[in-house]
């Protein structure tokens, strides 16, 4: 039994230590907002926050979660009103939408580190992610919206 600190709650998880957090979230807890894409850490679809920083849930075993704080897309805001979520809707970023929870968590991580990340920092962060539909240009728009509004504040 492992205590998992997730979305500001503690969950008692009865699962093997080696189980990747991705499957704990999706299949044990039934929280399906975090998506499966590659399982080997090359597509970043399953990106969530570990102590506020982007990590891939398929690369973290349950055992390694001890002492850490996790946030998934479900825990980002109550009403979908996190600035990143709002920017994503405003720029109509999503197509099929499957990669977007991971993209949004990446944006949150990046913007929490530095309020106005450089273009190369944005490039680097999102280049871990795969989108087959082709939302890259609109992610760029949404990020520039967020960066500009961050600068104004």
């Amino acid at each position: 039994m492992i205590d998992l600190n997730l979305n500001e709650k503690t969950f008692k998880i009865d699962a093997p230590d080696e189980m990747p957090l991705l499957w704990v979230l999706r299949d044990v807890l039934g929280m399906t907002g975090t998506k499966f894409g590659c399982g080997v850490g090359v597509c970043a679809t399953c990106t969530i926050l570990e102590n506020g920083k982007a990590v891939m849930a398929c690369q973290i075993t349950l055992e390694k979660t001890k002492g850490n704080r996790y946030t998934t897309i479900e825990g980002l805001s109550k009403d979908g009103d996190h600035p990143v979520q709002k920017a994503w809707v405003q720029c109509d970023v999503a197509q099929c939408g499957y990669c977007q929870p991971g993209m949004i968590m990446e944006a949150c991580s990046l913007l929490s580190e530095v309020s106005s990340p450089s273009e190369s920092a944005i490039n680097k962060a999102f280049s871990n992610h795969i989108c087959r539909c082709g939302t890259y240009p609109r992610i760029k728009q949404a990020m520039s919206l967020l960066v500009n509004s961050g600068k104004k504040e």
């Binding site: 929280m31 399906t32 907002g33 975090t34 998934t72 897309i73 479900e74 980002l76 805001s77 979908g80 979520q85 994503w88 809707v89 109509d92 970023v93 999503a94 197509q95 939408g97 977007q100 929870p101 949004i104």
Partner: peptide, 12 residues
Amino acid sequence: KRVDAPAIVNGS
């Protein structure tokens, strides 16, 4: 705008 966008961005 995409009708499913709110559900997509909150993971539902």
